[in-house]
Amino acid sequence: MFDDLRDLYQEVILDHGRRPRHARRLEVFDATAKGDNPMCGDRVQVWVHRDADGRIAETGFEARGCAISVASADLMAEVVNGRSDEDVKALAEKFRDLARTGTTDAQTDAQDEALERLRPLAGVHEFPSRVKCATLPWHALLAALQGRSEASSE
């Protein structure tokens, strides 16, 4: 009945939406921020722990939201590990393109394993009302890295 929705709900999304690996509040953390989607009531909080070099050592989150938003937060927590703030910011921008348009600059992307990991979320671009589900955790993460407590809404 829903076969044509497998583009949106790929197995990796269903899996991470159901059993997120990073859905936990960090006991020790350097930054945290919340993201709210006032239109639907979805909410996410992200915690970040940095290593001695200031790179991300661990990311945890608590999300109240749909399969897309939970899977997106979980995959995000996975791929930002070991990255600098600059790196995360660049990746967030590419991911936003991916979510909005279904594609990104191919030349750079081919080299970016992280983006490949996030590519299953590209299906949201066909669902304008769902794009924000996928991008909300990233807004929260960027806010945390910038020392803000709340993600600014788009």
Partner: peptide
């Protein structure tokens, strides 16, 4: 098993 948004998106397909 499904968040309301996911329900709505799937139902919309029908």
């Amino acid at each position: 098993r499904a968040h309301p948004h996911d329900i709505a998106t799937l139902l919309d397909r029908q």
